[in-house]
Each structure stands twice: as structure tokens, then as C-alpha cells.
Write a protein that binds this DNA or RNA. Structure first.
Lengths: 341, 341
DNA sequence: TTGTAAGCGTTATCAC
DNA sequence: GTGATAACGCTTACAA
């Protein structure tokens, strides 16, 4: 139903090829002919069919970007960074929300490949995302992993140093006097979760504080997960004096549960987490966090990807580890002393 | 370079058509042949080229969704609602971030049309978005506007009742004793801004409070905008006792400026806004807001669009106006009395 | 049940 | 400077 090249050609009294040349500014066209063609294009509101174009040119100038949650304040800047970089390179981005769901993620991956995107940026839902990537890996499809790495998977990465970040966060808690520190983490099949748990252990061990499995709660990395973990934790006696949650949303849910119990942060219990909570610091400038440079994840990820796409990347896979910055605010009793338990 | 139907056909020792039939489950294929073809598909990791498919079938089963800011807590659920509904209908969504930029928005519109999306959901950047839509409107292209309407534009809409919402918000302020109420709004070419200003006026006039242009500040609807408007407002003497901001991000920026001046909400000054601030209420349960049902915007918008696409919609354009709910918290001195000025 | 031919809308190539 | 032709990967229509 839409207007095609032929329609324009017919109206301008020329061949399809001439119209194509005018549209693409390729080849040379007589000035008068060009004028007639342009007139026809405008009159008919002709917009070239990219499907056909891509089919023949064998390039879509499109990349895919899959994240577990566009809405999460951490991923939002990642998306922005990737999109900006892609635009500058003349590429568009197909953005997909996997909702952390493996099946949905797999569907999106196939979908994007079916669309013949030239590369894929993926923040995988979990280690098990690997299965869906196997065919791509085998075919050396341009692929860059963001935020989370995959075991036994040799491909480009942009991640941050979760071990060091978590360690510093917990060291900070210890430095201000905490010794009974709970950790809310996710199931064992997400690299960031594993690494942050490792950082937690390292910090405790370095301070000769025994690591108690009773203080480690497995949960989902959303608000509900934080809420549930906190509820479980509240049964402990004595209560921990501080909590380290695996990410921002988990911290929010935790806050909610603590609030409902009448516990105040940081007076009654300390709270720190990974990922800053954009905007939130303005309303409640107290959560001490490890802030990851989201936009940089997107920017660098896209850059790596374009190097792959253009074949400039070589055979070895690159691994970029970004620094995660500690932002100390007041959520851990740094100023008021640790509650006695 | 990717594997094609022919490659599979060759490997399975059949014609391309047979492979096509197996892939699509259309026509009838001998069980043994089918097995061989499936084996070949698996062995080669064949994924059908959707570009080619769409080109011949003349349908992409794809819709476009353009919002000014995926990250904004209001639009996030809109996106989710639209995506879920689309998926159920067997469609995928191309999600684009216009950043409120008219040029970018226009590029995305053309891009999506070039992609031959079958319909478009658009939360327009401003009244001037209309220009880019003219060709679509003329061609009766399936289009549904979200959140914001466009002047002199006859097409399907899902908006909320900004006039009534704003009126109720300001009536509430008045009811608890405020009379000197500032309003931070956007430039005049966004329908929601206009409507909320209108609601503000109506509420004041109904209470026989003169509308003072000095109390109305035009700004951008992001955090920076709120911050700047608040800084200007702080020069007023006497200060207003309450502020009504056009949306959530503006309120955040306003908070920031007030905080820097040592003004507390709601003790020193009241603050209410449109749009709830997801998650935020947990940390700081005090902002009184008009909450718009974001997800419903997306869901209904997509439904309207699919009715258009399938031709079930008829000629007249539909206009859905959603109720905007007042959520009273404690940001307007309801409990503590209005500061004397 | 299976294969052949034509064509979707565009561009690359090579004549004219 | 311009146009015919083939091809991109696939499906519809028809033939065997």
C-alpha cells in the first residue's frame, strides 16, 4: 500500500534507477530530472523501504540492545550511552526489555538476529543466558556483554569491579564500627551477585570477622526481593547492625520493610548498596552506595561492538573493567555511632 | 554471510520451498523429509531473515513507540504496558527515546515508517511534533497519541484529565490553608502543561484568589528546569507558601533547590506535583501528587492502535481520557499548618 | 508431497 | 545521464 520507488518513477516519468540515484545522491543525474523526481517524492510522501534496502545492501545499520530493565536507574544511563554512541556511528538501536526473564531474552535475541542486526549489546539475565548465545558465539557474531559476565564465555565484556566495590563498601561499614553485617544477594547464577558476595567475604575475613551464612540472604534483585529478604532478616536475634544489598532496588525494598517495622536508617540500622539511586539522593541524601558509571558502560560497550562489526577488533576478546566509586553518605551510622546489639 | 533458506535446502537435499514449509508449518511435508530439514536447520543454526519475510508478506508485525524519556518514572510503565499488550497480539515494539527533541523525534518517525512498522504510538515532544506527523495523518497511517494531545489533529488519543487533576491538587492546597501558590510549568506548546496551568487557574478563581503571573514560572520539565525555576522563585518576597510543579522531575529539581536554601518540605513550604515518583515514596513518603496510571496509557494505547491496524476502528478518532488520582501525603502542611508569610 | 516461477522494493552492474 | 537486468531471501500461486 505504501508508495514505492516505482510510483515515484512513474510520476516523474523516469526509471526506478534514476529515482534511486536521486534518493541516495549516488551517480549523476541531470539537474532538471532531479528536480522532477524530488517533486514527485514530495508529492507522494515517498519514504524508502528500509527492509528492501537492507535486504539488497546486506546491512541494516542497526544494533540490538537487551537489558533486564530499562526502568532501573542503573540501566537507564547505559541505554542512553549506547544510543548516543550508536547514533554518532550512523546506527540505530533496537531496545529490548528482557525483564530478567530467560525465555523473553532468548526470544529477543532470535528476533534481533532475524532482523539482521549487525551486532548485539546484552546485559544478560543470568549465567543461563549463555545457552541462547551459543549459536552466536559459534558464528562469531559481534557481541558485547554489559554489566554481567558469563562463565566459560569468551567474548567482549564491559563490567565493573564488583569484588573491589563490595569490599570497599563493607570495609567502610567495618571501619565505622559494624561487625554484624547482613548481605542480601541474588541467586548464585549472576556474576555480579557472586562477585559482590565475594567482596563481602573478603572484607569480613580481612577484618577477622567470621562469615556467618545466617547473615546472607538470597533473593531477587528487585524491590520485592529486598522487601522479602528484610522481613526474613528481621527474625534474627540479635539484629545485624547493618545491611549490604546487592543493588539499588533491593535496597529500596529493604528500606520499605525496615520502615514498616519502625526501624530508621541509619539510626537503628545501617544500609549500603551497589548502584546509585538516581534522583533519590536529592530527596533522601543518606544512602551510601557504590556508584557504577552507567553511561560509560553503554558508551564503551557500543564502541567495542562497532570495532567488532567493522572487523577492527582482532580475534582476542576484550574485557573492560570499570572502577566502581564509593559514595559515602550517612546510611551507616558513620557519624552517630553503631547501634549496640 | 548468514545461513539462508537455500543453504538449508541444499544440506537437506530438498528445495527451498520445502524448507519454508517446515519453518512455517504451512502445507504438508513428509515426516522423513521434515526430519531431515529440521536437522539441517539445527546443524546450520538457521534463523529466517525477517527482512525478506516482511518484504514479501507485506507485514512486519511491528509497531513503533516513541517517548520523550524512557527513564522518566511516568513513561517507564507506559512502555511496559504497551510492550506487554503488543506481545500478546504477536507484535514486537521498536522503542525510541526522543529526549523531547523535535529533530530526533522526526528522525525516529521517518525511521520507523521506513522500517514499515504497522502503527505508531507517540508521546509527542510538543505541539510542533504535528508537522512530522502530517504525512502520516494524510495517509491514514495507524497512529495513537499518548499523554499529550496535538492541536488541530484528528487522531486517536489516550490522555489523562490534566485540567481536573491540577484543579484538585490546587484545591487541596487551598483547602489546607494555602493562598500564595506558585506554579512551575513548561513552555506553552505542550498540551499537558497548558491544561495543568488551566486547572491551576480554575482552582484559584473558584476560591476567589487572584491569579498572579509573578507566581507562574515557565521552565523545562526536567530536574534542571525545576531547579532553575525554584531559584528564580526564591527571590520573591514574600515567598509563596506552596508550589505546584507540572511533573515529577520538576518537583525533584525544586526539592534540590529548596534544600540548598535550607527550606524544608513541608514545614517551610508545601510542594505538590503531577506524576508519582516511583519508588520515591518509600524513602520519602511525603510528596502529594496526582498519579497517572502509566501502564494503562500503554495498554489502552496499544489496544486502540491494534484496532486501527486491523481496520476495526472506523473513521472517527477516539479519545480516551483517564482519571488522574490524587494521592495525599504530607508535602503541603496538611497536618502542620501553613507557614505564615 | 514437492518443486518451479514470479515477485516483494530496492540497489549494483553494465549497457546504451 | 539514464535505463534494463539481476539479485538480496523469502513466500504465494500454481504445476507436477
Amino acid at each position: 500500500m505504501p508508495v514505492t520507488l516505482r510510483d515515484v518513477a512513474q510520476r516523474a516519468g523516469v526509471s526506478a534507477m534514476t529515482v534511486s540515484r536521486v534518493v541516495n545522491g549516488s551517480g549523476s543525474v541531470d539537474a532538471e530530472t532531479q528536480r522532477r523526481v524530488e517533486e514527485a517524492i514530495l508529492a507522494l510522501d515517498y519514504i524508502p523501504n528500509r527492509l528492501a534496502r537492507s535486504l539488497v545492501s546486506q546491512q541494516t545499520r542497526t544494533i540490538g540492545l537487551i537489558v533486564p530493565d530499562v526502568v532501573n536507574p542503573f540501566f537507564a544511563p547505559v541505554v542512553r550511552g549506547a544510543e548516543t554512541t550508536a547514533r554518532k556511528a550512523g546506527y540505530r538501536v533496537l531496545l529490548c526489555n528482557s525483564e530478567g526473564d530467560l525465555r523473553l531474552e532468548r526470544e529477543y535475541i532470535e528476533d534481533l538476529v532475524a532482523h539482521r542486526v549487525e551486532g548485539l549489546l546484552l546485559a544478560p539475565a543470568s549465567d543461563r543466558s549463555r545457552v541462547a548465545l551459543l549459536p552466536l558465539l559459534k558464528g562469531r557474531f559481534p557481541l558485547v556483554l554489559l554489566d554481567r559476565s558469563l562463565p566459560d564465555t569468551d567474548c567482549d565484556h564491559v563490567i565493573s569491579d564488583s569484588v573491589a566495590g563490595a569490599r570497599r563498601l563493607v570495609e567502610h561499614l567495618i571501619a565505622v564500627g559494624h561487625r554484624r553485617i547482613a548481605h542480601f544477594t541474588e541467586s548464585d547464577d549472576v556474576s555480579t551477585g557472586r562477585d559482590r558476595l565475594e567482596g563481602y567475604r573478603q572484607a569480613l575475613e580481612a577484618a577477622h570477622i567470621p562469615v556467618s551464612e545466617d547473615l546472607i540472604f538470597r533473593t531477587t534483585t528487585d524491590r520485592i526481593g529486598g522487601y522479602r529478604a528484610a522481613q526474613l532478616m528481621l527474625h534474627l536475634d540479635p539484629l545485624p547492625t547493618a545491611i549490604f544489598t546487592v543493588n539499588n532496588m533491593t535496597a529500596l525494598g529493604t528500606m520499605q520493610a525496615l520502615r514498616e517495622r519502625g526501624l530508621k536508617v541509619p539510626e537503628d540500622i545501617g544500609l549500603v548498596c551497589f548502584d546509585d539511586v538516581e534522583h533519590l539522593a536529592i530527596l533522601s541524601p543518606f544512602l551510601t552506595v557504590v556508584d557504577q558509571p552507567g553511561e560509560t558502560f553503554g558508551t564503551l560497550g557500543a564502541q567495542l561492538l562497532f570495532e567488532r562489526i567493522s572487523g577492527k577488533a582482532g580475534n582476542r576478546s576484550r574485557r573492560i573493567v570499570l572502577q566502581a566509586d564509593l559514595i559515602v553518605r550517612q546510611s551507616c551510622c558513620a557519624n552517630n555511632g553503631v547501634p549496640a546489639r
